[in-house]
């Protein structure tokens, strides 16, 4: 639900305002996108304890302020594209709520020279966000119609550093491996071990877990410089199950 803008407007970061200005006056969704950014920032502050950060990387927020989410959702949902909620995109698939996309992206701690793999292209929105932040994005979609649609949408938006492949993502993208970061949005019964192998030492992988409409937790897989793997299970919400001291 949208919060009153007046409560949080003073907290807006300058980068986001700049990005909004860059989007130009002819973008009818610019204001909605700015509202979305403010909302995400407020949510992140409230969840700072769980996320271990006061604010997300300004570059991530800028990417969210830039990518035209409305252009990647079905036409009938364009009006609500910037609401902080998941949206159905057809084929039984959904596009995550922007807040979740923001924290997933932030957790990957990417740098501009990075190469990223995404398994489960879906609408292409996450790939577009990644493409704003890194050098190259490789994304695999198993549902053919969805892959074609995302490819066309991303091409129309002019993303040249995204490669969409239609097929099975279980074995990753061997020709381009290893990757600095991997996003696994397609539900699998387990995290594919081949993907762990294609993660660079020092790389990070993020896996949202939950139903199509609600992400219950994020699993962050970290491979350290020696190749040791540790997973972190993150509740994307400010909630501690234990009360008091035990």
């Amino acid at each position: 639900m949208r919060k009153p803008a007046r409560i949080i407007s003073f907290m807006v970061c300058t980068t986001c305002l700049l990005a909004g200005a860059m989007a130009g006056d002819d973008d009818p969704f610019a204001e909605a996108r700015q509202d979305m950014i403010r909302e995400i920032e407020a949510d992140v502050r409230r969840t700072s304890l769980q996320l271990d950060t006061e604010a997300l990387d300004p570059r991530v927020m800028q990417a969210l302020a830039t990518v035209p989410r409305h252009a990647l959702v079905p036409g009938s949902l364009q009006d609500v594209a910037y609401e902080n909620r998941p949206l159905p995109i057809g084929h039984g698939q959904t596009i995550s709520q922007p807040y979740i996309v923001a924290i997933m992206t932030d957790l990957l701690k990417m740098t501009p020279a990075d190469k990223v793999l995404e398994v489960g292209t879906g609408s292409g929105y996450q790939a577009a966000i990644l493409a704003e932040l890194v050098d190259r994005v490789y994304t695999i979609e198993i549902i053919e119609a969805l892959g074609q649609q995302a490819r066309a949408g991303l091409e129309a938006l002019g993303y040249e550093n995204i490669t969409v492949r239609i097929g099975d993502g279980y074995y990753g993208w061997q020709e381009q491996a290893p990757f600095d970061a991997i996003v696994v949005t397609a539900a699998a019964s387990h995290i594919p071990p081949p993907l762990i192998e294609q993660l660079k030492n020092g790389g990070r992988m993020i896996v949202p877990v939950g139903s199509r409409f609600m992400v219950q937790q994020l699993v962050l897989v970290e491979k350290d410089l020696q190749g040791e793997v540790v997973t972190r299970q993150i509740l994307p919400v400010r909630f501690v199950p234990l009360t008091g001291t035990h």
Partner: peptide, 8 residues
């Protein structure tokens, strides 16, 4: 927390 991913 409903707006911040709390519903699950």
């Amino acid at each position: 927390l409903r707006g911040q991913g709390g519903l699950p």
